[in-house]
Design a protein around this nucleic acid. Structure first.
Lengths: 347, 347
DNA sequence: GTGAAAGCGCTAACAC
DNA sequence: GTGTTAGCGCTTTCAC
């Protein structure tokens, strides 16, 4: 049905025999409309297939009906894994869909000096009702402050460290990493190595703390020699494995702070002819698609990323127009995904 | 800098001592502005940190300054690979960024009956300047026609089959699949199996045709028995491998129509103790991140997805406001990525 | 419970 | 080259 001219609020008002203000009341679910009037208007809306114009609404009110999801641009990687970001997008979109909001995505290079200015420009031009800031951008004060200074409602995802006057949605990185470590220890592993993630990523940093907690809980000693500093990339996982597995007394388990690095460990083990999990157990974190696609499939930690982003979007949508800035923090617990890459320690 | 009230075009006009129309001319790079005037205005813009409001602009003109990327919602998969979609997003965003456009993403379930209505609603509410429709949605007439009927400029990505009165950006699926097949044959493989993709995806269907072309070019016979009908999922790749590798005369090479399925083949081979590529060569298609993360890393076909989406976005942005609908088709050639999973046929 | 009028910030058409 | 005047399609007062 090619309606050359789109129906406007005037058309609906005329058809229903009411004023445009009443139509507006109906579309915005405002109170103080007689039931019979509402029905008349709704009939006209349906008949004309009327949809409020988002720009007009945004211009006249402060409700632009869209939010922005900002995350670190994966483009420096030749081949973005993507699952992480995609799940965030899915969650945010789910909340948007039911509320009839739209989602703008805005990947930005964390290292780019002017990302803060870029975001401010976006805010001024487009006036989003809120922003969701994903890790690791969510723990960069320059970015966070830039957004906050505009007054745009902001939810930080996994900022690594809560801030009293901000709102954040996180997962229990430290606790679940401890649990994974205890799980490995419970399989009899005594030398459990850890490949740490990029320093800039605080939430990933918490996983190292959790690893140490887990060792302690299991009565194992922490040793710097069993920690390799990776940078979240596959290559750094391979480098870590190369180093760790060429020790005279090599670890029987390696826990990597993300799945890309864990995949690197598995690749190196395969090349060296080390059986996984027979001779070496490997665990990752994030449960990206790679985890289930490789052989052996990866024991990992699954964060409820979609649920977290959905919650973030929901908070922004519900609190939209609230006078006071958002404060608080929520924790969405992650869970262990035991798959094929972990097993009892070798004799 | 917390500017409580944002600068408007009036503020700039006042400061520069010109009319708002002149400011508008400057921000829109229209001709007929004296150089000295332009400079005055630009100085005022910089000083006030003025950004045109996107909603006001959209309302007053037909130029909303944003486009929509529509693709099949990956949510039915527990763990979306994502690389494919992410690369499309990256490409579209690149074009948007330089032109100061924004990108709205809209995943939609292909099977959902009302996706067409949903897109029409989005168009009416938000008035995007154009839409990019990714495969496999790009080959579904109901969706394509619904968008086209609104008059919104549309670019189809890999529709599988060109349509004379549409615009599309595709890759040479058939030709490159033939090339991959010839490459495998050149390694001495005589029994090259093929795991086909989902029927709804025409571009993926073209890969089967290319496989047949390649066999013919290499003087090999096509046999239905060497083709397994997958559905693009890891599980279907495993199912295909199970079937093909349990033949008495098993194939020495398996070419899967996407990487997820190829990863499934490699998993099954590993479980069965079949060496890759020693006893079995495996090739995929798409070059998603999994391809480089598994061991052995996957020989595959890399499509210039980002470049294709960038081109699509650029066409929409450049032709925005054009009176005649977009027509034409462009081909972006894909390339073979030879990695570890393919090698000479066993004796 | 409903409506009239003003105006959000910009661009369009036309005047000068 | 530049300015004036009308809207774009809504929401917001505030009157009734």
């Amino acid at each position: 049905m090619n309606t050359s001219r789109k129906a406007t609020i005037d058309d609906v008002a005329r058809m229903a025999g009411v004023s445009i203000k009443t139509v507006s009341r109906v579309t915005n679910r405002e109170p103080n409309v007689r039931e019979s009037t509402r029905e008349k208007v709704e009939a006209a809306i349906a008949k004309l297939n009327y949809r409020p114009n988002i720009s007009a609404r945004s211009l006249a009110s402060l409700r632009s009906h869209f939010i922005v999801l900002v995350y670190d641009d994966p483009s420096p990687y030749e081949n973005p894994s993507g699952g992480y970001i995609l799940r965030l997008q899915q969650g945010a979109l789910r909340a948007c869909g039911t509320a009839n909001y739209e989602l703008l995505i805005h990947p930005g290079r964390a290292r780019k000096r002017d990302l803060a200015a870029e975001l401010q420009s976006l805010i001024e031009r487009a006036r989003p009702e809120g922003m969701i800031l994903a890790a690791p951008l969510s723990n960069m004060p320059s970015i966070v402050d830039a957004i906050a200074s505009t007054g745009t409602p902001l939810v930080q995802l996994s900022p690594g460290k809560d801030s009293a006057n901000r709102y954040s949605v996180s997962t229990n990185d430290r606790e679940i990493s401890a649990e994974m470590t205890r799980y490995l220890a419970s399989l009899g592993h005594q030398r459990i190595a850890f490949i740490a993630g990029h320093r800039s990523h605080k939430a990933v940093g918490n996983r190292l703390l959790g690893y140490q907690d887990g060792l302690r809980d299991s009565g194992l000693n922490f040793s710097e020699r069993l920690v390799f500093a990776g940078d979240n990339s596959l290559a750094s996982g391979e480098a870590g494995a190369d180093k760790l597995l060429n020790r005279k007394r090599r670890p029987t388990a390696i826990f990597a702070a993300n799945d890309d690095m864990a995949a690197g460990v598995i690749r190196v083990a395969a090349r060296m002819g080390i059986e996984v999990p027979g001779q070496l157990s490997v665990a990752g974190c994030d449960d990206i698609s790679v985890a289930s696609h490789i052989f052996p499939s990866l024991t990992t930690i699954r964060q409820p990323l979609a649920a977290m982003a959905e919650r973030a979007a929901l908070v922004l949508i519900e609190e939209s127009g609230a006078s006071s800035p958002l404060r608080g923090s929520e924790i969405f617990p992650a869970s262990l995904k035991i798959r094929e890459s972990t097993g009892p320690a070798p004799e």
